[in-house]
Design a protein around this nucleic acid. Structure first.
Lengths: 203, 203, 203, 203
DNA sequence: CATGAATGAGGATTCATTCAT
DNA sequence: GATGAATGAATCCTCATTCAT
């Protein structure tokens, strides 16, 4: 999807990702990006039309990579439970492996009308992942395995239980005295699946 | 808690809240704040030592007000279910009434080592709300009403189901075609309680 | 017409006139203007929105001043010859007293579609000077003093004979070995009037 | 005079002429010249040592070409009147056929100490045209056809009446409501000759 | 308290020029 | 000859902050 990128261009994008993640678009400094990338400041403008355009490209590529990886990792399975577990793993992996992911996402979310937010949403939607799990869940309801709940709301809840922690971690950790975040995440996976399944299954 | 504030100082704080919410600390412009507040730029420096100090004060006051209001609104009740509903209502109210709340929070969360994030967490912790619901839930487990789940993880899930939507709304709305956000929030309250209670109750 | 201008603003305008006259809009340096004016570079942007806007203001004020002065100097007379002499004097004075005048004018003329050129033309037209001399000349034709020539073309010729030298001086001086420009201008006034009157009078 | 120019070099010179005419030396952009010429920017530096050197070369060639053409077009005639008409035609042709001519000239004139202005003046002087008409005119005076006027001033007036319009056209057109420039120029030729001859002839 | 003016240190962007291939 | 990439020195403009009144 991003073929034949010159080494310089790649280095700029990598440096920019770090910079934008740490300082946001407004707080980022082009000088610093150039320094991190080990290139002349003017080279940034040779490859990208402006700081804003660079920012957009960074977001596009970063989210695209993560979603592609996620799509390839989700286990295709007939058993809804396996699919659920697979999703939980993928979420955790995506956020753990890419530390910049959360920050970039948070800053875009704070930019109310941000074009990038729309782009991200489109990417997620067109990845097909949401539809996949929903139709699987819907089937489970029709087959009598799950209570006839509001599918949309229920799945939103599932996403939030998974993703939400990574977003609010700094606050949650402080309030609940989470010291070992890795262990907490690890325990969290089971807890989320457990709560969700008990919440929807017919017994 | 914030007594004897001059009208000018208040106007500055209000204007600053809007500015910081929209643009963040780095993107905010002192000129614009002065203009919004209808005061001379120098007045801002008469009342606050720097842009950063103003930012901090804005966050402190804003979150303090919201948490105070939340604390006063939560219904004290013996029935866990009522307490749960009360919390859900309070979350929804806090986020709906204060549009700037989410943005400010998101931006602070993105600021990794942010002192403000710690401040916010402290405020929430010292409001006693988390402890209240957790001990109520713990009692329910001991009385045999709820399954013996990990209390911490479970309650984190509950928070995320409630709060998470407001944070990720721009993305969720786009993926799930939410057009009427108010109605979605309204439906959401019941769905969350329903999922959570089914998830933890012993039947 | 330009009342209550602060000393700083005036100093900037004066410095800018010199700079723009010497280097043109593209070649002018904001730093140099600030230095010449003895003010901080940022003050220029405090008083004017951009280099271009400053340029425009400089031109507007400069030409306005010169035209106002010219209008006040032209002798109102019934004798066409006196009016003619008066014009010649005024042209010479305007160009001699304001060395920047020519350069600024030349550069604007070179800017084909320049808004400023239109502005200058409007100023000249609305000064009433062209109409004044033309109607006086027209009267002379009707009274039988002058040959029935094309008034427009003839008056354009008169202007060019007067103004043209100042514009092409660097070339003319070199080709015709003009060493004492002041003397040449002085002789020129008579020569122009003489040629023109002989050219139009009926004898 | 400019032999063996490679196609690339020619294309650069043509593109540069357009660029310099439109924007002047300071406003011209090397990138834009390269783009217009359809060559790589570095090629410009392969053929010319700097932007300034290119500029100089452009002016040299352009004026040389125009003067050469003018010299070849002027009709050699014993009758002064024919010579006069020939000059008027040549001026009009030179300015009408080469739209860039005026702009380049104006910009050089505005550059007070410009070396190029001297170069242009030298070219004109060494073309012999000025001397030719002056000596012809001088002969006319001596033969009693013309009044004993100041030859230098008179001929400067003649030049200005011819050339001046093309320089001040943007302003003149606006003040005198010239809509059809071609027609105005056409009428102008006769008017200028008429005024000049009546101005100098003895009757 | 309040203001208009002033300032210094950036900050994004540009541009003539050069280099490696 | 020709090119894409690279560079350093500007260049315009901004912005938090301060000062005189």
């Amino acid at each position: 999807m991003f073929p034949e990128e010159s080494s310089t261009r790649k280095r700029i994008l990598t440096a920019a990702l770090a910079e934008f993640s740490e300082f946001g678009l407004a707080g980022a400094r082009v000088d610093r990006i150039a320094q991190k990338a080990g290139v002349n400041k003017a080279m940034i403008y040779y490859h990208f039309s402006s700081k804003k355009a660079l920012h957009q490209e960074v977001i596009k590529q970063h989210f695209s990579r993560i979603l592609t990886a996620a799509g390839q990792t989700v286990t295709v399975s007939d058993r809804f439970e396996d699919l659920l577990k697979s999703f939980t793993e993928v979420y955790a992996a995506a956020f753990s492996i890419n530390p910049e992911f959360v920050n970039i996402l948070l800053r875009e979310l704070a930019d109310s009308g941000s074009e990038n937010t729309k782009m991200i949403a489109d990417m997620i939607a067109s990845s097909g992942l949401p539809k996949q799990i929903v139709s699987s869940f819907q089937a489970g309801i029709e087959q009598g395995h799950f209570r006839p709940v509001d599918v949309r709301q229920t799945f939103v809840s599932f996403i939030l239980m998974n993703v939400g922690y990574f977003i609010l971690a700094p606050i949650i950790d402080k309030i609940w005295d989470v010291t070992d975040r890795d262990q907490f995440v690890s325990e969290r996976k089971e807890a989320v699946i457990d709560l969700f399944l008990h919440g929807v299954k017919i017994r």
